[in-house]
Simulated assay, not measured.
Amino acid sequence: MNCREGCGACCIAPSISTPIPGMPNGKPAGERCLHLSVDFLCGLFGQPERPDVCGAFKADIEVCGSSREEAINLIGWWEQMTAA
């Protein structure tokens, strides 16, 4: 599955525990990344400062569902199920 352009669910729903430019403590689950544009595109895409976890994310129907809203819900659910 390819990412849905303009979705951005993976930049909102999960937590990111590594530093992000402008977010030195990472990002809590459910908080929009500072680098997510108004068009829901990653402003760090292809940049060396983009967190490895972001670059490693692979869209999958099990995680992303069939819409942006479903992706936010599913990723949020996965976040809760895997939280330490």
Rank of each mutant, 00 (worst) to 15 (best):
I61D: 11
K58Q: 15
S37M: 01
G26C: 02
W77H: 12
I12L: 12
C33H: 11
F57G: 03
C10K: 10
G43F: 06
P14I: 11
S17E: 07
G65K: 03
P24A: 06
G8Y: 09
S66P: 00
E5L: 13
E5A: 14
R50E: 14
Q47Y: 09
P19E: 06
A59Q: 02
G8V: 03
P51A: 00
N73S: 15
P14D: 08
P19Y: 00
L41R: 15
E49N: 15
I20D: 05
I75A: 07
I20R: 10
I72S: 04
S17T: 11
P51T: 05
D52N: 09
I75W: 03
A83N: 08
E31W: 01
Q47C: 02
G22W: 04
G46E: 13
D60S: 11
F40T: 06
G30R: 03
Q47D: 04
G6F: 09
S37F: 04
L74P: 05
N25T: 09
E79H: 10
M81R: 10
E62F: 03
G22N: 02
N73T: 14
T82L: 09
G43D: 09
Q80G: 07
E31T: 15
I12H: 04
E69A: 10
I12Q: 07
K58H: 15
L36P: 09
S66R: 12
P24M: 01
C64W: 07
A13F: 02
T18H: 02
L41V: 14
S17W: 02
C64S: 02
Q47W: 06
K27A: 03
L36H: 14
C54G: 01
C10F: 02
F40R: 13
G65H: 05
M81D: 06
